[in-house]
Design a binder for these strands. Structure first.
Lengths: 214, 214
DNA sequence: AATCTAGTACTAGACGGGTCAGTACTCAAA
DNA sequence: TTTGAGTACTGACCCGTCTAGTACTAGATT
Protein backbone atom coordinates (compact mmCIF):
# COMPACT_ATOMS: atom_id res chain seq x y z
CA UNK A 1 0.00 0.00 0.00
CA UNK A 2 1.50 3.27 -1.07
CA UNK A 3 0.38 6.72 -0.27
CA UNK A 4 -3.08 6.12 1.15
CA UNK A 5 -3.19 9.72 2.28
CA UNK A 6 -3.65 10.94 -1.27
CA UNK A 7 -7.39 11.36 -1.50
CA UNK A 8 -7.53 13.93 -4.27
CA UNK A 9 -7.21 13.02 -7.96
CA UNK A 10 -3.83 13.57 -9.62
CA UNK A 11 -3.54 17.31 -9.58
CA UNK A 12 -2.38 18.94 -12.74
CA UNK A 13 -2.33 22.32 -11.07
CA UNK A 14 -1.42 23.06 -7.48
CA UNK A 15 -3.95 23.69 -4.75
CA UNK A 16 -3.62 27.44 -5.01
CA UNK A 17 -4.11 27.43 -8.75
CA UNK A 18 -7.21 25.27 -8.38
CA UNK A 19 -8.69 27.61 -5.79
CA UNK A 20 -7.85 30.57 -7.94
CA UNK A 21 -9.68 29.05 -10.88
CA UNK A 22 -12.73 28.32 -8.74
CA UNK A 23 -12.77 31.92 -7.53
CA UNK A 24 -12.50 33.30 -11.03
CA UNK A 25 -15.28 31.07 -12.30
CA UNK A 26 -17.56 32.10 -9.47
CA UNK A 27 -16.70 35.77 -9.84
CA UNK A 28 -17.23 35.67 -13.59
CA UNK A 29 -20.65 34.11 -13.14
CA UNK A 30 -21.71 36.63 -10.50
CA UNK A 31 -20.26 39.78 -12.05
CA UNK A 32 -21.77 38.93 -15.43
CA UNK A 33 -25.17 38.28 -13.92
CA UNK A 34 -25.37 40.92 -11.18
CA UNK A 35 -22.87 43.58 -12.14
CA UNK A 36 -19.99 45.00 -10.14
CA UNK A 37 -21.91 46.66 -7.33
CA UNK A 38 -24.49 43.89 -7.30
CA UNK A 39 -21.87 41.29 -6.43
CA UNK A 40 -20.39 40.90 -2.96
CA UNK A 41 -17.11 39.29 -2.10
CA UNK A 42 -18.91 37.00 0.34
CA UNK A 43 -21.05 35.68 -2.48
CA UNK A 44 -17.98 35.05 -4.58
CA UNK A 45 -16.31 33.12 -1.77
CA UNK A 46 -19.42 31.08 -1.08
CA UNK A 47 -20.04 30.17 -4.72
CA UNK A 48 -16.38 29.26 -5.14
CA UNK A 49 -16.61 27.11 -1.99
CA UNK A 50 -13.68 28.99 -0.57
CA UNK A 51 -13.10 31.20 2.42
CA UNK A 52 -13.06 34.93 1.97
CA UNK A 53 -9.51 35.03 3.21
CA UNK A 54 -8.46 32.86 0.28
CA UNK A 55 -10.12 35.25 -2.13
CA UNK A 56 -8.09 38.10 -0.69
CA UNK A 57 -4.93 36.01 -0.85
CA UNK A 58 -5.36 35.60 -4.60
CA UNK A 59 -6.71 39.04 -5.42
CA UNK A 60 -5.79 42.17 -3.58
CA UNK A 61 -9.23 43.70 -3.71
CA UNK A 62 -12.56 43.70 -5.51
CA UNK A 63 -11.44 45.98 -8.32
CA UNK A 64 -8.48 43.79 -9.12
CA UNK A 65 -10.66 40.69 -9.14
CA UNK A 66 -13.03 42.42 -11.51
CA UNK A 67 -10.28 43.38 -13.93
CA UNK A 68 -8.91 39.84 -13.84
CA UNK A 69 -12.20 38.17 -14.67
CA UNK A 70 -12.90 40.61 -17.49
CA UNK A 71 -9.55 39.85 -19.04
CA UNK A 72 -10.21 36.14 -18.66
CA UNK A 73 -13.68 36.38 -20.17
CA UNK A 74 -12.40 38.49 -23.04
CA UNK A 75 -9.93 35.78 -23.97
CA UNK A 76 -12.77 33.34 -24.41
CA UNK A 77 -14.73 35.32 -26.99
CA UNK A 78 -14.60 34.39 -30.64
CA UNK A 79 -11.53 35.27 -32.61
CA UNK A 80 -11.87 36.38 -36.21
CA UNK A 81 -8.28 37.28 -36.98
CA UNK A 82 -7.96 34.26 -39.24
CA UNK A 83 -10.47 35.52 -41.79
CA UNK A 84 -7.72 37.57 -43.35
CA UNK A 85 -5.91 34.46 -44.58
CA UNK A 86 -9.15 32.55 -45.18
CA UNK A 87 -10.26 35.14 -47.71
CA UNK A 88 -6.87 35.36 -49.36
CA UNK A 89 -7.91 33.09 -52.20
CA UNK A 90 -11.68 33.21 -52.17
CA UNK A 91 -13.43 32.00 -55.29
CA UNK A 92 -17.05 32.80 -54.46
CA UNK A 93 -17.05 36.07 -52.54
CA UNK A 94 -20.80 36.21 -51.96
CA UNK A 95 -20.93 32.70 -50.53
CA UNK A 96 -17.88 33.19 -48.34
CA UNK A 97 -19.05 36.53 -46.98
CA UNK A 98 -22.41 34.93 -46.20
CA UNK A 99 -20.72 32.19 -44.23
CA UNK A 100 -18.55 34.67 -42.39
CA UNK A 101 -21.58 36.76 -41.54
CA UNK A 102 -23.45 33.81 -40.09
CA UNK A 103 -20.44 32.70 -38.09
CA UNK A 104 -19.99 36.24 -36.83
CA UNK A 105 -23.53 36.87 -35.71
CA UNK A 106 -23.77 33.46 -34.05
CA UNK A 107 -20.66 34.12 -32.02
CA UNK A 108 -21.58 37.61 -30.92
CA UNK A 109 -25.20 36.97 -30.03
CA UNK A 110 -24.31 34.34 -27.46
CA UNK A 111 -25.54 35.12 -23.94
CA UNK A 112 -22.04 35.21 -22.47
CA UNK A 113 -20.83 37.74 -25.03
CA UNK A 114 -23.90 39.89 -24.55
CA UNK A 115 -23.59 39.83 -20.76
CA UNK A 116 -19.95 40.78 -21.02
CA UNK A 117 -20.80 43.66 -23.31
CA UNK A 118 -23.57 44.88 -21.05
CA UNK A 119 -21.35 44.71 -18.00
CA UNK A 120 -18.55 46.70 -19.63
CA UNK A 121 -20.88 49.36 -20.92
CA UNK A 122 -22.34 49.65 -17.45
CA UNK A 123 -18.94 50.00 -15.80
CA UNK A 124 -17.23 52.11 -18.47
CA UNK A 125 -17.43 55.10 -16.16
CA UNK A 126 -15.97 53.34 -13.14
CA UNK A 127 -13.37 51.29 -15.04
CA UNK A 128 -12.37 53.26 -18.12
CA UNK A 129 -9.11 51.37 -18.55
CA UNK A 130 -10.81 47.98 -18.42
CA UNK A 131 -13.48 49.07 -20.88
CA UNK A 132 -10.92 50.47 -23.27
CA UNK A 133 -8.84 47.32 -23.04
CA UNK A 134 -11.84 45.10 -23.72
CA UNK A 135 -12.91 47.17 -26.68
CA UNK A 136 -9.52 46.95 -28.32
CA UNK A 137 -9.09 43.25 -27.68
CA UNK A 138 -12.55 42.03 -28.65
CA UNK A 139 -14.70 44.09 -31.03
CA UNK A 140 -11.82 46.29 -32.15
CA UNK A 141 -9.73 43.27 -33.03
CA UNK A 142 -12.52 41.82 -35.14
CA UNK A 143 -13.07 45.09 -36.99
CA UNK A 144 -9.35 45.27 -37.65
CA UNK A 145 -9.44 41.78 -39.15
CA UNK A 146 -12.36 42.76 -41.37
CA UNK A 147 -10.56 45.93 -42.37
CA UNK A 148 -7.48 44.04 -43.45
CA UNK A 149 -9.54 41.45 -45.29
CA UNK A 150 -11.45 44.09 -47.24
CA UNK A 151 -8.28 45.98 -48.03
CA UNK A 152 -6.87 42.87 -49.67
CA UNK A 153 -10.10 42.09 -51.49
CA UNK A 154 -10.10 45.63 -52.82
CA UNK A 155 -6.51 45.15 -53.91
CA UNK A 156 -7.57 42.08 -55.86
CA UNK A 157 -10.28 44.12 -57.51
CA UNK A 158 -13.12 42.14 -55.94
CA UNK A 159 -14.46 45.10 -53.96
CA UNK A 160 -14.54 48.83 -54.62
CA UNK A 161 -13.51 50.46 -51.35
CA UNK A 162 -12.11 53.86 -50.51
CA UNK A 163 -11.93 53.43 -46.75
CA UNK A 164 -11.54 49.79 -45.66
CA UNK A 165 -12.11 50.68 -42.02
CA UNK A 166 -15.43 52.34 -42.79
CA UNK A 167 -16.41 49.38 -44.95
CA UNK A 168 -15.57 46.98 -42.12
CA UNK A 169 -17.78 48.95 -39.77
CA UNK A 170 -20.61 48.90 -42.27
CA UNK A 171 -20.26 45.16 -42.78
CA UNK A 172 -20.18 44.34 -39.08
CA UNK A 173 -23.10 46.51 -38.09
CA UNK A 174 -25.28 45.79 -41.09
CA UNK A 175 -25.24 42.25 -39.83
CA UNK A 176 -25.58 42.48 -36.11
CA UNK A 177 -26.63 45.96 -35.04
CA UNK A 178 -30.34 45.23 -35.00
CA UNK A 179 -30.39 42.02 -32.95
CA UNK A 180 -27.57 43.30 -30.74
CA UNK A 181 -29.28 46.58 -29.97
CA UNK A 182 -32.47 44.86 -28.96
CA UNK A 183 -30.61 42.29 -26.92
CA UNK A 184 -28.93 45.05 -24.92
CA UNK A 185 -32.28 46.28 -23.61
CA UNK A 186 -34.14 42.99 -23.31
CA UNK A 187 -32.22 40.99 -20.78
CA UNK A 188 -33.04 37.28 -21.00
CA UNK A 189 -36.61 37.93 -22.08
CA UNK A 190 -35.75 37.90 -25.76
CA UNK A 191 -34.02 35.36 -27.87
CA UNK A 192 -33.51 35.49 -31.58
CA UNK A 193 -34.07 32.25 -33.43
CA UNK A 194 -31.29 30.97 -35.71
CA UNK A 195 -33.62 31.72 -38.60
CA UNK A 196 -33.88 35.36 -37.54
CA UNK A 197 -30.13 35.63 -37.21
CA UNK A 198 -29.50 34.07 -40.58
CA UNK A 199 -31.85 36.56 -42.14
CA UNK A 200 -29.98 39.50 -40.57
CA UNK A 201 -26.73 37.99 -41.85
CA UNK A 202 -28.00 37.45 -45.39
CA UNK A 203 -29.67 40.84 -45.70
CA UNK A 204 -26.61 42.55 -44.31
CA UNK A 205 -24.33 40.87 -46.82
CA UNK A 206 -26.76 41.72 -49.62
CA UNK A 207 -26.70 45.44 -48.80
CA UNK A 208 -22.95 45.40 -48.28
CA UNK A 209 -22.30 43.85 -51.67
CA UNK A 210 -24.74 46.18 -53.40
CA UNK A 211 -22.65 49.09 -52.18
CA UNK A 212 -19.13 47.71 -52.34
CA UNK A 213 -19.03 45.08 -55.10
CA UNK A 214 -17.17 46.07 -58.24
CA UNK B 1 -42.64 100.56 -0.46
CA UNK B 2 -45.00 97.74 -1.27
CA UNK B 3 -44.86 94.20 -0.07
CA UNK B 4 -41.38 93.95 1.35
CA UNK B 5 -42.25 90.53 2.68
CA UNK B 6 -42.36 88.96 -0.77
CA UNK B 7 -38.82 87.71 -1.23
CA UNK B 8 -39.47 84.93 -3.74
CA UNK B 9 -40.18 85.60 -7.43
CA UNK B 10 -43.76 85.25 -8.65
CA UNK B 11 -44.30 81.53 -8.41
CA UNK B 12 -45.90 79.89 -11.38
CA UNK B 13 -45.88 76.52 -9.68
CA UNK B 14 -46.51 75.85 -6.02
CA UNK B 15 -43.83 75.07 -3.51
CA UNK B 16 -44.30 71.31 -3.74
CA UNK B 17 -44.08 71.32 -7.51
CA UNK B 18 -40.91 73.37 -7.37
CA UNK B 19 -39.31 70.99 -4.88
CA UNK B 20 -40.37 68.03 -6.95
CA UNK B 21 -38.71 69.47 -9.99
CA UNK B 22 -35.49 70.14 -8.07
CA UNK B 23 -35.47 66.55 -6.84
CA UNK B 24 -35.99 65.15 -10.31
CA UNK B 25 -33.24 67.30 -11.77
CA UNK B 26 -30.81 66.26 -9.07
CA UNK B 27 -31.76 62.61 -9.36
CA UNK B 28 -31.46 62.68 -13.15
CA UNK B 29 -27.99 64.15 -12.91
CA UNK B 30 -26.81 61.63 -10.33
CA UNK B 31 -28.42 58.52 -11.76
CA UNK B 32 -27.11 59.30 -15.23
CA UNK B 33 -23.61 59.89 -13.94
CA UNK B 34 -23.27 57.29 -11.20
CA UNK B 35 -25.88 54.66 -11.98
CA UNK B 36 -28.66 53.31 -9.80
CA UNK B 37 -26.60 51.64 -7.10
CA UNK B 38 -23.99 54.37 -7.24
CA UNK B 39 -26.51 57.01 -6.22
CA UNK B 40 -27.77 57.42 -2.66
CA UNK B 41 -30.96 59.10 -1.62
CA UNK B 42 -28.98 61.38 0.69
CA UNK B 43 -26.97 62.63 -2.26
CA UNK B 44 -30.15 63.32 -4.18
CA UNK B 45 -31.61 65.29 -1.29
CA UNK B 46 -28.42 67.26 -0.81
CA UNK B 47 -28.00 68.13 -4.48
CA UNK B 48 -31.65 69.12 -4.70
CA UNK B 49 -31.18 71.30 -1.60
CA UNK B 50 -34.08 69.51 0.01
CA UNK B 51 -34.52 67.34 3.04
CA UNK B 52 -34.68 63.60 2.65
CA UNK B 53 -38.16 63.60 4.06
CA UNK B 54 -39.33 65.73 1.17
CA UNK B 55 -37.85 63.28 -1.30
CA UNK B 56 -39.84 60.49 0.30
CA UNK B 57 -42.97 62.60 0.31
CA UNK B 58 -42.77 63.01 -3.47
CA UNK B 59 -41.52 59.53 -4.35
CA UNK B 60 -42.39 56.41 -2.43
CA UNK B 61 -38.96 54.83 -2.75
CA UNK B 62 -35.74 54.77 -4.74
CA UNK B 63 -37.07 52.50 -7.47
CA UNK B 64 -40.03 54.73 -8.08
CA UNK B 65 -37.82 57.79 -8.26
CA UNK B 66 -35.63 55.99 -10.76
CA UNK B 67 -38.55 55.07 -13.00
CA UNK B 68 -39.85 58.62 -12.86
CA UNK B 69 -36.59 60.24 -13.91
CA UNK B 70 -36.12 57.76 -16.75
CA UNK B 71 -39.56 58.57 -18.09
CA UNK B 72 -38.82 62.27 -17.79
CA UNK B 73 -35.47 61.98 -19.52
CA UNK B 74 -36.96 59.87 -22.28
CA UNK B 75 -39.47 62.58 -23.06
CA UNK B 76 -36.63 65.02 -23.69
CA UNK B 77 -34.90 62.98 -26.41
CA UNK B 78 -35.29 63.87 -30.07
CA UNK B 79 -38.47 62.98 -31.84
CA UNK B 80 -38.36 61.82 -35.45
CA UNK B 81 -41.98 60.95 -36.00
CA UNK B 82 -42.46 63.93 -38.26
CA UNK B 83 -40.11 62.66 -40.95
CA UNK B 84 -42.96 60.59 -42.33
CA UNK B 85 -44.82 63.68 -43.46
CA UNK B 86 -41.64 65.60 -44.26
CA UNK B 87 -40.69 63.00 -46.84
CA UNK B 88 -44.16 62.76 -48.30
CA UNK B 89 -43.30 65.03 -51.22
CA UNK B 90 -39.54 64.89 -51.39
CA UNK B 91 -37.97 66.07 -54.64
CA UNK B 92 -34.31 65.28 -54.04
CA UNK B 93 -34.19 62.02 -52.09
CA UNK B 94 -30.43 61.89 -51.73
CA UNK B 95 -30.21 65.39 -50.34
CA UNK B 96 -33.11 64.94 -47.95
CA UNK B 97 -31.86 61.60 -46.67
CA UNK B 98 -28.47 63.19 -46.08
CA UNK B 99 -30.03 65.95 -44.03
CA UNK B 100 -32.09 63.48 -42.05
CA UNK B 101 -29.00 61.40 -41.38
CA UNK B 102 -27.04 64.37 -40.07
CA UNK B 103 -29.92 65.48 -37.90
CA UNK B 104 -30.31 61.94 -36.57
CA UNK B 105 -26.68 61.33 -35.68
CA UNK B 106 -26.35 64.74 -34.06
CA UNK B 107 -29.32 64.10 -31.82
CA UNK B 108 -28.34 60.61 -30.76
CA UNK B 109 -24.66 61.24 -30.11
CA UNK B 110 -25.39 63.89 -27.49
CA UNK B 111 -23.91 63.11 -24.07
CA UNK B 112 -27.29 63.04 -22.36
CA UNK B 113 -28.70 60.52 -24.80
CA UNK B 114 -25.61 58.36 -24.53
CA UNK B 115 -25.66 58.43 -20.73
CA UNK B 116 -29.31 57.49 -20.74
CA UNK B 117 -28.65 54.61 -23.07
CA UNK B 118 -25.75 53.36 -20.99
CA UNK B 119 -27.76 53.58 -17.80
CA UNK B 120 -30.67 51.61 -19.23
CA UNK B 121 -28.45 48.91 -20.65
CA UNK B 122 -26.77 48.64 -17.26
CA UNK B 123 -30.08 48.32 -15.42
CA UNK B 124 -31.97 46.22 -17.97
CA UNK B 125 -31.63 43.24 -15.66
CA UNK B 126 -32.90 45.03 -12.56
CA UNK B 127 -35.59 47.08 -14.28
CA UNK B 128 -36.78 45.09 -17.30
CA UNK B 129 -40.04 47.01 -17.54
CA UNK B 130 -38.33 50.39 -17.53
CA UNK B 131 -35.82 49.27 -20.15
CA UNK B 132 -38.55 47.88 -22.37
CA UNK B 133 -40.57 51.04 -22.03
CA UNK B 134 -37.61 53.22 -22.90
CA UNK B 135 -36.74 51.13 -25.91
CA UNK B 136 -40.22 51.35 -27.34
CA UNK B 137 -40.61 55.06 -26.69
CA UNK B 138 -37.21 56.27 -27.90
CA UNK B 139 -35.21 54.17 -30.40
CA UNK B 140 -38.16 51.98 -31.32
CA UNK B 141 -40.30 54.99 -32.10
CA UNK B 142 -37.65 56.40 -34.40
CA UNK B 143 -37.21 53.11 -36.24
CA UNK B 144 -40.97 52.94 -36.68
CA UNK B 145 -40.96 56.41 -38.20
CA UNK B 146 -38.19 55.42 -40.60
CA UNK B 147 -40.05 52.23 -41.47
CA UNK B 148 -43.20 54.12 -42.37
CA UNK B 149 -41.24 56.70 -44.37
CA UNK B 150 -39.47 54.05 -46.40
CA UNK B 151 -42.70 52.14 -46.99
CA UNK B 152 -44.20 55.25 -48.55
CA UNK B 153 -41.09 56.02 -50.58
CA UNK B 154 -41.16 52.46 -51.87
CA UNK B 155 -44.82 52.94 -52.76
CA UNK B 156 -43.89 56.01 -54.79
CA UNK B 157 -41.25 53.97 -56.60
CA UNK B 158 -38.31 55.95 -55.21
CA UNK B 159 -36.88 52.99 -53.31
CA UNK B 160 -36.85 49.25 -53.94
CA UNK B 161 -37.68 47.66 -50.61
CA UNK B 162 -39.02 44.25 -49.64
CA UNK B 163 -38.97 44.71 -45.90
CA UNK B 164 -39.27 48.37 -44.80
CA UNK B 165 -38.50 47.49 -41.19
CA UNK B 166 -35.23 45.82 -42.14
CA UNK B 167 -34.38 48.77 -44.40
CA UNK B 168 -35.05 51.18 -41.54
CA UNK B 169 -32.70 49.22 -39.31
CA UNK B 170 -30.03 49.26 -41.99
CA UNK B 171 -30.40 53.00 -42.49
CA UNK B 172 -30.25 53.85 -38.80
CA UNK B 173 -27.27 51.68 -37.98
CA UNK B 174 -25.28 52.38 -41.12
CA UNK B 175 -25.26 55.93 -39.88
CA UNK B 176 -24.67 55.71 -36.17
CA UNK B 177 -23.58 52.23 -35.16
CA UNK B 178 -19.87 52.97 -35.36
CA UNK B 179 -19.68 56.18 -33.33
CA UNK B 180 -22.36 54.93 -30.95
CA UNK B 181 -20.61 51.65 -30.27
CA UNK B 182 -17.37 53.37 -29.47
CA UNK B 183 -19.08 55.97 -27.33
CA UNK B 184 -20.64 53.22 -25.21
CA UNK B 185 -17.22 52.01 -24.11
CA UNK B 186 -15.35 55.30 -23.94
CA UNK B 187 -17.11 57.33 -21.31
CA UNK B 188 -16.31 61.03 -21.58
CA UNK B 189 -12.83 60.38 -22.88
CA UNK B 190 -13.90 60.37 -26.51
CA UNK B 191 -15.76 62.89 -28.51
CA UNK B 192 -16.49 62.74 -32.19
CA UNK B 193 -16.05 65.96 -34.10
CA UNK B 194 -18.95 67.23 -36.19
CA UNK B 195 -16.81 66.46 -39.23
CA UNK B 196 -16.49 62.82 -38.16
CA UNK B 197 -20.19 62.56 -37.59
CA UNK B 198 -21.05 64.11 -40.93
CA UNK B 199 -18.79 61.59 -42.60
CA UNK B 200 -20.57 58.68 -40.91
CA UNK B 201 -23.89 60.17 -41.99
CA UNK B 202 -22.83 60.69 -45.59
CA UNK B 203 -21.18 57.31 -46.00
CA UNK B 204 -24.15 55.60 -44.41
CA UNK B 205 -26.57 57.26 -46.80
CA UNK B 206 -24.33 56.40 -49.73
CA UNK B 207 -24.34 52.69 -48.88
CA UNK B 208 -28.05 52.73 -48.14
CA UNK B 209 -28.90 54.27 -51.49
CA UNK B 210 -26.56 51.92 -53.35
CA UNK B 211 -28.58 49.04 -51.98
CA UNK B 212 -32.12 50.41 -51.96
CA UNK B 213 -32.40 53.02 -54.70
CA UNK B 214 -34.43 52.00 -57.72
C1' DA C 1 -56.00 95.92 4.45
C1' DA C 2 -53.66 94.11 8.16
C1' DT C 3 -53.58 90.43 11.46
C1' DC C 4 -54.40 86.09 13.33
C1' DT C 5 -54.74 81.05 13.05
C1' DA C 6 -54.96 76.30 11.65
C1' DG C 7 -53.07 73.17 8.77
C1' DT C 8 -49.66 71.70 5.76
C1' DA C 9 -44.90 71.38 3.88
C1' DC C 10 -40.36 71.40 4.98
C1' DT C 11 -35.72 71.00 7.57
C1' DA C 12 -32.11 68.85 10.14
C1' DG C 13 -30.60 65.24 12.25
C1' DA C 14 -30.82 60.93 14.56
C1' DC C 15 -31.71 56.11 14.28
C1' DG C 16 -32.86 51.09 13.30
C1' DG C 17 -31.84 47.40 10.56
C1' DG C 18 -29.14 45.92 7.21
C1' DT C 19 -25.10 45.26 3.75
C1' DC C 20 -20.42 45.26 2.43
C1' DA C 21 -15.13 45.53 1.90
C1' DG C 22 -11.46 44.15 4.08
C1' DT C 23 -8.95 42.32 8.43
C1' DA C 24 -7.95 39.29 12.40
C1' DC C 25 -7.88 35.15 14.68
C1' DT C 26 -8.63 30.27 15.82
C1' DC C 27 -8.43 25.65 14.55
C1' DA C 28 -8.13 21.75 11.39
C1' DA C 29 -6.07 19.73 7.35
C1' DA C 30 -2.22 18.86 4.08
C1' DT D 1 4.91 24.55 8.70
C1' DT D 2 2.05 26.16 5.40
C1' DT D 3 -2.59 26.57 3.85
C1' DG D 4 -7.16 27.33 4.16
C1' DA D 5 -11.95 27.08 6.53
C1' DG D 6 -14.83 29.32 9.42
C1' DT D 7 -16.19 33.13 11.72
C1' DA D 8 -16.22 37.22 14.14
C1' DC D 9 -15.25 42.03 13.73
C1' DT D 10 -14.49 47.01 12.16
C1' DG D 11 -15.72 50.94 9.95
C1' DA D 12 -18.32 52.77 6.54
C1' DC D 13 -22.40 53.29 3.97
C1' DC D 14 -27.31 53.20 2.82
C1' DC D 15 -32.57 52.87 2.81
C1' DG D 16 -36.35 54.27 4.88
C1' DT D 17 -38.55 56.08 9.26
C1' DC D 18 -39.20 59.18 12.94
C1' DT D 19 -39.16 63.35 15.81
C1' DA D 20 -39.02 68.12 17.05
C1' DG D 21 -39.19 72.30 15.47
C1' DT D 22 -39.53 75.96 11.51
C1' DA D 23 -41.49 78.09 7.26
C1' DC D 24 -45.14 78.76 4.35
C1' DT D 25 -50.06 79.29 2.77
C1' DA D 26 -54.80 80.37 2.77
C1' DG D 27 -58.81 81.50 4.85
C1' DA D 28 -61.15 83.85 8.78
C1' DT D 29 -61.30 87.86 11.65
C1' DT D 30 -60.58 92.35 13.01
Amino acid sequence: MTDLTRTSPPQEEGRSARKRRAIMEAATELFLRNGYQGTSMDEVATLAAVSKQTVYKQFTDKEQLFSAIIIGATERVGDFTDVVTEFAGTEDLEKDLGELARRYITAVIQPRTLQLRRLLIAEAGRFPAVARDYYQRAPGRTIDAFTETFRKLAGRGLLRIDDPSMAAGHFAWLILAQPMDKAMFFDEELQHTPTDLQRFADEGVRVFLAAYRT
